[in-house]
Design a protein around this nucleic acid. Structure first.
Lengths: 112, 112
DNA sequence: TTCGGTAGTTCAGAAAATACGAACATATGA
DNA sequence: TCATATGTTCGTATTTTCTGAACTACCGAA
């Protein structure tokens, strides 16, 4: 099991962020992580439980979020502690994340 | 040659926009279209001329932008008139495009 | 009205990215 | 030590993207 890699904030790229969040599952996970401040394990997310996502797929999703620089993952016992790197990303790309999450929220509201 | 399809603004999806703009070439084209208000043909873009992009690839890029709802394309004689649908998109998803274009600009500045 | 050039599209096969089952790794508690 | 839980990795199937070649549509000149 190779160690988890996190890009330093200055190496975070816009295209990687957009790509990561262009997947509705990943966007939902990230949004949920955003609203709930405390670290959460991969399988604890409501957006994950709702759809039935195979765990290998889930693992990939978290890797994409991680390597895009959006989240920080750390092993804590048997599970993973995932936290958003929002503050850093917001400082580097002001308004980017907000705009994206708002848009998703808006879209979700329409279907409600 | 099948007719060009443009989604109506209410059918525009965030994930499609993010996907479209997660490609640096498409993002550059769109940004350029943004800054220059008047309609431009596909091959007229500086970002296109700089890199040497095969025209079949270019055609696909424009299709992705079009079907994401980001641009409007219209045949005008032998060439294409492409215009940004920014105003509509901004109304539907306030701040989204701005955040993205700012982020790309910021990133470009760093490499300058 | 035909010919030549220009701008872009479509098609088909190659290449790259993604999805997911099965096997594996790692930590915990009994 | 063993059973269980959380997540990763690997291999392969599927999907998406890229691009050269052929094609379409339009224009202007002869």
């Amino acid at each position: 099991m190779r160690p988890l890699t996190h890009p330093s904030i200055e190496n975070v790229r816009v295209e990687a962020i957009l790509h990561a969040l262009s997947d509705p599952v990943r966007a939902a996970i990230y949004a949920e992580m955003q609203s709930d401040g405390c670290p959460q394990s991969c399988s604890s997310f409501a957006s994950v439980r709702a759809r039935e996502i195979p765990k290998s797929t889930l693992s990939q999703h978290f890797r994409v979020l991680r390597e895009a620089g959006l989240i920080h993952s750390e092993r804590q016992g048997v599970e993973m502690r995932n936290t958003s790197r929002y503050a850093e990303v917001e400082q580097r790309f002001p308004g980017l994340i907000c705009g994206i999450l708002n848009a998703y929220r808006q879209q979700a509201d329409e279907n409600a």
